[in-house]
């Protein structure tokens, strides 16, 4: 009974950095997380292209936003590539397993 009290207390403590939008009890699959990520990564590339067009159309508001958009797109691409590599590594590792 004591152990149950403690674990229930621990699970009821507010989680630091927990996603506020998640309904308690709902779990998102790896596929959902992956898809959301590729959506976000795609958006950074899109934002960068929009930023490029706004610069050459004379619509840019300042210079740092243009540079930041480029950097974010670069980071998102690198992250995507790394994730892809890791997924492939995990896949080949699993395929290598002897049943």
């Amino acid at each position: 009974m004591n152990i149950n009290n403690i674990t229930s207390q621990i699970s009821n403590m507010p989680k630091v950095g927990a996603d506020q939008n998640k309904i308690v009890g709902e779990t998102s699959s790896f596929k959902d997380v992956l898809f959301k990520f590729t959506e976000d990564a795609n958006k950074t590339d899109y934002d960068d292209k929009i930023s490029n067009l706004s610069v050459l159309l004379g619509d840019a508001e300042n210079t740092h936003q243009a540079m930041i958009a480029a950097e974010k797109a670069d980071l998102a691409l690198r992250l995507t590539i790394q994730i892809r590599n890791k997924i492939i590594d995990a896949y080949t590792e699993v395929m290598r397993m002897q049943i």
């Binding site: 300042n62 210079t63 740092h64 540079m67 930041i68 480029a70 950097e71 670069d74």
Partner: peptide
């Protein structure tokens, strides 16, 4: 100076 410095991002 400000604008040129901002090109150093990245």
């Amino acid at each position: 100076n400000m604008a040129m410095k901002s090109f150093d991002i990245g």
